[in-house]
Nucleic acid binder design. Structure first.
Lengths: 223, 223
DNA sequence: CGGTGGGTTGAGGTATTTCAAGGCTCGTGG
DNA sequence: CCACGAGCCTTGAAATACCTCAACCCACCG
């Protein structure tokens, strides 16, 4: 895993603006491509960069010693991830498919924030929205049924993926399962159940499925 | 539910310092007592104050429409809660026992943070530590067994409650269950199991139990 | 063409929930 | 002072949602 650092100085001031950190802080950015399944950073590694998905998708997760995995978030095109408050990553991040990311070296974003109010605000905004997502996910993991979890997942993806009408899920059943605190078989069964109720359709049988979601019908089930 | 606002101007500059916001921002604070079970604020209510537990304990939770409850956090003496990034609370907060809280009116803490770097930093610190707690809790809710959850809960409380050796849990079994994504019966059984293994002891049978935790023995189970 | 990596579906197992009963403590009121 | 009920906790037995194990299918690819 290697990163082409400090390259392309001409692009220096662009990154933060593009990713939502609207300041002109002194940082450098570069792009890098990770192959499907490649690790972008590991849990407990020192956090030297922050990342933005240019193309592809990323999963970030925690592991228990016996291999049980909890995926905390999927990062789609445009999303920023790898932002840590302490010095070390608290997750492992992997490319779900071949993925292009932009990196910014940021030894101490917190330090920049001390003097730049705009950076401070953006940091807080991002952290707060991550927190909000986590809070909702705790409710899902602690109290929802498998059908409700899968339905919530579909709605979230429908909301976040660009495609109008049909969405191509980049992640496999196991990823979905580890995101929802289920097994892949349970996810598959829940999808079949929803399919049977006419809530969703599968377009093409070409491995990575395209899902057509009928949000109205899903809402009628009021899960 | 009423709050004695803007009282005691002499204490004005003290509050933020005491709660960890180390700046001298222009805010006012007051104290208020909530009876056991009383609601401190409700989900979706506008967030006009932030709170610190002076004495007692608080639970904050989300509800599903059919009454299923997920407790996101317990707030113990010294903890700050009710801090929201948007304008509205995303949880309901209730006093678990008779509880004294300090309140600070803060229409827009984010606004203060624009000009005061120390406030900005403290806001970020608190939000980040909330996020970290939520991330760990997602792993617990999504992937741990009932015994592991209860053990983790005991360790967390052992760490956060002041008492040396013995701790008095302020919350009932149902609260613990709703925090851990279990039923109260499962929590009770897990505690009995741990008791049977000599990991913990109960002091007195006086309703609100005192728990003696043997951290070494608990660690030996390596859950 | 055979192998690999998903995905689906079925059958059986199990951890946890649900339902139910009983015990203990405490407060209240006769 | 005692009886009573309410609240909380524990424990048992039965139900069930989800998991595990397994077989099979399909698409893709060397």
């Amino acid at each position: 895993m290697f990163v082409n650092l400090n390259a392309n100085p001409a692009s220096r001031p662009r990154f933060l603006g593009e990713i939502g950190l609207r300041s002109q802080a002194d940082v450098s950015s570069s792009e890098f491509k990770y192959h499907r399944g490649a690790e972008i950073f590991g849990e407990a590694e020192p956090a030297e960069y922050i990342y933005q998905v240019i193309d592809g998708s990323v999963r970030s997760y925690k592991l228990l010693s016996d291999g049980r995995r909890q995926i905390n978030a999927f990062h789609m095109v445009g999303d920023i991830f790898g932002l840590e408050h302490g010095g070390a990553h608290r997750f492992t991040a992997e490319a779900i498919v071949d993925t292009m990311v932009r990196l910014v070296k940021c030894v101490s974003l917190a330090h920049i924030a001390e003097t730049d109010a705009a950076v401070a605000r953006d940091l807080l905004n991002m952290t707060a929205s991550n927190l909000q997502h986590a809070e909702n996910h705790m409710l899902l993991l602690g109290r929802k049924t498998s059908l409700e979890r899968v339905a919530a997942f579909l709605l979230e993806m429908d909301h976040r993926l660009p495609a109008a009408g049909a969405m191509a899920l980049p992640m496999c059943r196991r990823d979905i399962a580890d995101y929802l605190g289920l097994t892949l078989e349970t996810v598959s069964r829940a999808l079949s159940t929803l399919h049977g109720k006419g809530v969703l359709g599968f377009v093409g049988q070409t491995q990575r499925q395209i899902v057509l979601l009928d949000r109205r019908k899903l809402a009628e089930l009021d899960l």
